[in-house]
Design a binder for these strands. Structure first.
Lengths: 346, 346
DNA sequence: ATGAAAGCGCTAACAT
DNA sequence: ATGTTAGCGCTTTCAT
């Protein structure tokens, strides 16, 4: 690797001239000089070290991304969009870390980012409290948190980007109601996060607006001890089995799943128990993963505007100095109707 | 952020003493001095900057990972294992990049890594030629390439880790043959890579060993122009439609898919065309994604030892100086039997 | 046992 | 228009 010194020597100019050329201050030199510098750069295959540059400027074109688990298709889809946007629009690279819902891992990730000079981070955390995130913000990081909203009346130094979970669940639930379902369940996992609370509220609001004969229950499928890849789907499968054990006359006929992975697990469990989707039970998911199109029956789901949210997060993180709204909520991109919802048996 | 200077001042020692303490050269100072330094570090919440350290030592604890697309569940699963291993065993963080099969993006990623001082990289590339990779190796990077083997008689400076694709496809094909299938097809996409070639060879070898009445064809489902998330599945769907259009007496009854995503697409297309899996057509995948367990019917697939391969790659990349085999091939972890394979209709 | 000082590759005043 | 130089935070000889 050649250095700026080598270039200066080769072009027979000083390092500052090379530096000026490198940083677009080309008006400060004769075109001819610039040409010589550029020729030298090309001849030597010189690339300035971000490292040395950063030591001086205190700034590095690296974006931190914290996800619960890369093996969860929703998170890897978000990661993909974040990476693409960061790279194409801002020339930033992605430093990624998984936490598996472990507070210690999360804290360690922030430490390492600090150490690496990374000062812009997007956090997708399922941890209940935002403590680490806020303390990182206090240490001067530009933080954007996904799927979470600001605690009211409390400036946290953290920006928030989230889907409109209320609207998404409401949309899903209305779809079920329109198909004639009256016994509804929202299937979730143990642990209440803000986003889950919103989905449940949307679910209940849709049920309420449909009138008195609609029964809407929330089904908590159990704990996610270890945040594995398939656990949410496994919880869905277990919930399906519990549902199937109910007498048919009591069993909910319309299920809103916490997300697509849960819906997929639900369908697998239902099938295992000998129940048909949608003949016996209808299922609708939330997320809009492309995998939902491959299931059998195809999963009807609420698509979230992942690309738009990813762009918003990247913009907010990278242009932290700019004046921008601190909190953005994105309406669902719409309902993708496939085959997992039908009229209830009567 | 406090610096080593602050610590030195606070502990009333010189920076070199602090540096020595930081780097485990504690035998060079009185225990009492060490204690003072440690107290100062704690008091100030000091964390040495990897950055400055790296500028001096030329080494950074960052591992580059190049994948075709994070949205492909197999790659994100590998990424997850790579990240976990790199972090837990070596305290390395992951700098990730997607290429979408674009040589320019791939080259740009290497450039950026160099610029960031990253000198160890794991490459999962579907690009035909390994040119960029080898040139990066020549520039001093420690490279490990996944799912590809060394070109014989050509020291490339690149280490290779790959599943035994031949054995995997052979295992899948034998399973079909054991169930009585005689008309077999291997379903792939356009473009021949080394790993695809090996899978096809394994498929054909299994067919050949089964005797003369077995017909084994290779079905190329078309191009992957843009390396999107679902494209392989889409190609599978399209291939299924073509297959379904064939007269039943000629149609292959047993399908080996290039990978699980392709198998999932195949099953979706078959269903769309009104064909039953496994009654009309049996399907077996390769990869062992957890998603294969959620499909309907559950996908029978050959599980690849992803964690073991990820560990091997990380070890090789991080301990590049150590003497280790340059090429490792991993046997499949076994066949996961679910419901997508049955006896052919007769 | 401890400290002084020379860089690592670059940027940005501040000269000239 | 171009050059000199002082750091950025750390490691590492080499002195003391």
């Amino acid at each position: 690797m050649s250095t700026i010194q080598d270039v200066a020597r080769h072009a027979e100019v000083s390092v500052s001239t090379v530096s000026n050329a490198l940083n677009g201050r080309v008006d400060r030199m004769r075109p001819e000089t610039l040409a010589r510098v550029e020729a030298a750069i090309r001849a030597l295959g010189f690339r300035p070290s971000t490292l040395a540059r950063q030591l001086k400027t205190g700034h590095t074109p690296l974006l931190g991304l914290l996800v619960p688990s890369l093996a969860n298709p929703m998170y890897s889809f978000i990661a993909r969009e974040v990476e693409a946007c960061a790279q194409e629009r801002f020339d930033y690279r992605l430093l990624i870390g998984s936490t598996y819902r472990d507070p210690a891992k999360e804290a360690a990730f922030f430490e390492d980012l600090l150490t690496h000079g990374v000062r812009r981070v997007i956090v997708i955390s399922s941890l209940a409290d935002e403590g680490h995130v806020e303390s990182a913000a206090r240490r001067g990081m530009a933080l954007v948190s996904y799927d979470r909203r600001a605690t009211p009346g409390q400036a946290s130094g953290v920006a928030h980007v989230a889907p409109d979970n209320f609207a998404a669940a409401q949309l899903a639930t209305r779809h079920l109601i329109e198909h004639g379902h009256r016994r509804l369940a929202f299937v979730t996992v143990a642990g209440m996060t803000m986003s889950r609370r919103d989905k449940i509220a949307g679910f209940q609001a849709a049920a309420a607006e449909a009138g008195g004969d609609v029964r809407a229950q929330v089904l908590d499928g159990g704990t996610l001890d270890e945040y594995g890849d398939s656990v949410i789907a496994e919880v869905g499968r277990a919930s399906a089995l519990r549902l199937a054990a109910l007498p048919a006359a009591q069993r909910p006929t319309g299920l809103v799943a916490l997300n697509d992975l849960m819906a997929l697990g639900l369908m697998a469990g239902l099938r295992e128990a000998g129940l048909q989707v949608p003949a016996d039970v209808s299922v609708v998911g939330i997320d809009g993963l492309f995998l939902a199109a491959l299931s059998n029956p195809g999963l009807t789901t609420v698509r979230l505007p992942v690309r738009e949210m990813a762009q918003a997060m990247v913009e907010r993180a990278v242009q932290a100095e700019a004046e921008m709204p601190d909190d953005r909520v994105f309406a669902p991109a719409g309902l993708v109707v496939r085959e997992s919802v039908g009229a209830p048996r009567r």
